[in-house]
Design a protein around this nucleic acid. Structure first.
Lengths: 208, 208
DNA sequence: CCATATAAAAATGTATACATTTTTTAGAAG
DNA sequence: CTTCTAAAAAATGTATACATTTTTATATGG
């Protein structure tokens, strides 16, 4: 596990609270490396929204920003249905099967953490998106997901919502299997919108 | 001018041809710095698509990729009208005036290079987008523009197309000034689509 | 007591030196 | 002549040391 991943994990787990300012030297000592790899990791984390550049005053852990979440989900609502539609004609039975497997795994194991559920969730959609063979579009969508990750870890999703989400997932696969990519795109858009709403509501009520 | 900007400029000007592999030590000597700032600059350039990571075999100047251009413009067609629509209610007379000024400057000076036209083009749209006060959405759109820059420098736009583009720009401002943001969004989508088509056609014919 | 200027400190940026990994090349065996 | 292996060369990754910039603390003048 490289430094970037270690710092990111610790940010996910709330080791550094929002607003906290981090110095290169401090991180270098904490993770027992020199400042050079720290700088590399910080730049990457900044580009993914895990940290914000305070200019030359070090970096800070950004506070939760509902407006950012709204933007991220708005963008995903526009881009992911597009990508899924481009993928639809290339979906093989095997790919659809792998997607279903991921859903089944999420369904059967009820001990998963929010972060783990988030990872499987993305793996499900990514599995479908990859069939489009559109690397640039995929990369941008993936980056938007990475930016969302920062918020998802804190979300204690209700079991109720988790069930709804899973039903939507199965509906999307079913619809794609029927070859109705247009309806599947519409379902996906609603699915993302609902997830965004859920997250925004949670942020507004719980931890502003 | 920092190292990142210098290398980017040289990439724009074709100093390093597509496919060329660049070593840290080589760049360090060329630009007369050590490898540390080179590494920082390379990471940034990679994240913007100016270079592709060859893993641990150095970085390479990517070849022109029509599929990448298509993806970039598809995404812009989805995101920029959204951003402009969000900005529309906040557009002041002053902002609209500044946008017009930029267009007038492009119109009057016929000696501008493709890169300079591209910069003004973006400045025009960004001027409108900023009014939305949606930093996250703006940042993603800006990044897509940066990725497009790599291709635009090579494009020798016909005067004919340049005129068409300018007419579309004025039409967008006029429509926004009338308060018809929906039509303006539609015009913008067509505008981006046309620019993408133009670029794809150019790449297919000229320099594959 | 407040403002300002100056010095000390702390933090980031960069160069050099070393370590580790990867790639290439040379050589020997089949 | 090909193929596998091992050594050397080259490239990236990292640590230490130094330079520059920025911030903070302090002291002095108003």
């Amino acid at each position: 596990m490289n430094l970037y991943q270690r710092i990111k994990r610790d940010l996910q787990q709330g080791r550094f609270p929002p607003g906290r300012v981090l110095k290169q030297a401090e991180l270098a000592e904490l993770y027992d490396v020199s400042r050079i790899p720290v700088r590399d990791a910080l730049q990457q984390l900044k580009s993914e929204g895990w940290l914000t550049g305070h200019g030359k005053r070090g970096v800070a852990v950004p506070r939760f920003d509902v407006l950012e979440v709204e933007d991220l989900y708005l963008m995903r609502m526009r881009l992911e249905p597009l990508l899924q539609t481009l993928a639809a004609p290339h979906l093989s039975a095997e790919t659809l099967g792998r997607a279903r497997d991921i859903l089944d795994r999420m369904e059967s194991d009820r001990t998963l953490s929010a972060t783990e559920i988030g990872a499987l969730n993305w793996e499900f959609h990514a599995c479908l998106y990859r069939a489009a063979a559109r690397p640039t579009l995929f990369a941008t969508v993936e980056q938007l997901h990475r930016q969302c990750e920062r918020y998802i870890g804190y979300q204690s999703r209700s079991l109720n919502y988790q069930d709804t989400s899973q039903r939507e997932h199965y509906a999307i696969v079913d619809t794609l299997q029927r070859g109705d990519s247009e309806t599947a795109a519409s379902l996906l858009e609603q699915h993302i919108g609902a997830a965004g709403q859920q997250l925004v509501t949670f942020l507004r009520s719980g931890s502003g």
